[in-house]
Simulated assay, not measured.
Amino acid sequence: MSDFQSVIRIIVVAASPVIRMGLSAMLEDNPKFIVVKSVSDIDEIVELQADVILLDWNETDYELIKQQFIWATIIIVDEFADFNLATILAAGVKGILPQTSMESEIIAAVEAVVSGLIVLHPQVINNQQLLKETNLQILTPREIEVLQMLTNGMSNKLVAQNLHISEHTVKFHVSSIFQKLDVSTRTEAVAVGVRLGLIML
């Protein structure tokens, strides 16, 4: 979202008119948001422009969700059975929430993905089977700090000075980042970190 834009524009997609109306009403109660369109099918958003798509996901959306969207997309899922986390993230999805999410969680997720972050609900992170199938290992806050500094081209020595830790500890963090992101160079780590929304250029 650009600096001059004060309102977050959202498209709500849900097959159920009840869910559509509920999500739209909840979002529009917040002065930071405006729902530019509320539609029943993901195909209807092709020509529309928004900052975030909030999608009530189900099996019928599975093939379509693989497409690369222009906007940040948050999906709300009923359950995690038959849920391919790797495919969903590769499609450009920035947030995954269960249907049991509270209003405050949905609002926080919208604001986070607009800021360039990825939002995974604790139910997703705690689902070990999903993480195992995806080979996704979450970076620690400190590792994300280190990765962001690598993005800025900092050496291990500079990273150590900025974080007030030893170079040995920095090397440990870098090694852990490489392992978790399945990369072998700093450039690859930065590229994967950006794609996953862990860091911003």
Rank of each mutant, 00 (worst) to 15 (best):
Ile144Trp: 02
Ala108Met: 03
Met149Val: 02
Glu167Ile: 06
Glu143Met: 06
Leu131Cys: 00
Ala90Arg: 09
Pro141Ser: 10
Glu105Lys: 15
Asn156His: 07
Val174Ser: 04
Gln123Asn: 01
Leu120Thr: 03
Arg142Gln: 00
Pro141Trp: 12
Gln128Ser: 11
Leu89Thr: 11
Val170Phe: 13
Met149Thr: 03
Leu163Asp: 10
Ser104Cys: 04
Gln129Phe: 13
Val183Thr: 00
Ala189Gln: 04
Arg142Asn: 01
Leu120Asp: 02
Ser101Lys: 10
Ala86Leu: 15
Leu89Trp: 15
Ala160Thr: 14
Val114Arg: 08
Thr185Cys: 06
Thr187Asp: 15
Leu97His: 03
Ser166Tyr: 06
Leu163Lys: 10
Ile125His: 03
Ser166Leu: 08
Leu147Pro: 06
Ala160His: 13
Ser104Arg: 07
Ile107Glu: 09
Val192Phe: 04
Gln128Ala: 11
Thr87Tyr: 12
Val190Cys: 14
Gly95Lys: 08
Ala191Ile: 09
Leu97Asp: 01
Ile177His: 01
Ala90Asp: 09
Arg186Met: 08
Glu133Leu: 15
Asp182Lys: 13
Ile125Gln: 06
Pro141Met: 07
Glu111Met: 06
Thr187Tyr: 14
Glu105Pro: 15
Leu130Met: 05
Val170Glu: 12
Thr151Pro: 02
His164Leu: 01
Ser101Phe: 11
Asn126Trp: 11
Ala90Asn: 07
Leu97Asn: 01
Ser101Asn: 09
Ala112Asp: 06
Thr187Gly: 14
Leu181Tyr: 00
Asn156Cys: 06
Leu136His: 05
Pro122Asp: 04
Val119Arg: 07
